[in-house]
């Protein structure tokens, strides 16, 4: 067990545990805080894989914007939502069975891949090469220029839709 594996397993366990706490806690605010921890765990997994840009973006966008938006939304519905709803419904046994069957199928298929047991190849990029490649890919027509512009249209739609809905409800 190399040090890297130990670190990876501890971060992975942290992320999975936080995710379980998110869905099983009754108090919505606590669930949002555990979500922040789960997202931190995912960011550290990105950093371990050498994708530092995505680790920083994960913290910046997910925790700094989306988690805060979620917390504000939780506050907004606090008067309406009560904390006494049950966390499971009657079909939870069947759901567990189905999920574990799917899980074992997926694990079985992945482990039959030849690269499953090989260690991660050494990441030799330092500095800005990966981000440079990403940047050039965003704007070059033979790269991802069209998805780049489509992403901006998607963001525009999200902005307008969100503001329209929120403003409408606000004027009531």
């Amino acid at each position: 067990m190399s040090v890297q594996q130990v670190i990876f397993i501890s971060f992975a366990l942290l992320t999975v545990f936080s995710a379980i706490m998110v869905v099983s806690l009754r108090n919505l605010f606590h669930a949002a805080l555990w979500l922040v921890l789960a997202l931190l765990g995912i960011a550290s997994l990105f950093a371990l894989l050498g994708a530092s840009f995505f680790a920083a973006v994960q913290i910046l966008v997910y925790i700094g914007a989306i988690a805060i938006l979620l917390i504000f939304a939780v506050m907004l519905t606090r008067n309406i939502m009560s904390d006494e709803v049950t966390q499971t419904n009657r079909a939870w046994g069947l759901a567990v069975l189905l999920v574990s069957v799917i899980f074992f199928i997926i694990i079985g298929q992945i482990s039959s891949w030849s690269g499953f047991s090989q260690p991660l190849s050494e990441f030799t990029y330092t500095g800005q090469e990966t981000i440079l490649a990403l940047g050039k890919g965003f704007v070059s027509p033979s790269g991802f220029a069209l998805p780049f512009e489509t992403a901006s249209v998607l963001l525009l739609a999200a902005l307008l839709g969100g503001v329209y809905i929120a403003m409408d409800k606000g004027k009531e």
Partner: peptide
């Protein structure tokens, strides 16, 4: 509702800025 609106607008512009950072490096 104002807090929620500000957080929403912040989110959208944050994601936009994040998209522009790799472009700025490759400028």
């Amino acid at each position: 509702i104002q807090y929620y609106l500000y957080a929403l607008v912040f989110l959208i512009f944050d994601v936009e800025t994040v998209f522009l950072f790799p472009f700025a490096v490759a400028y």
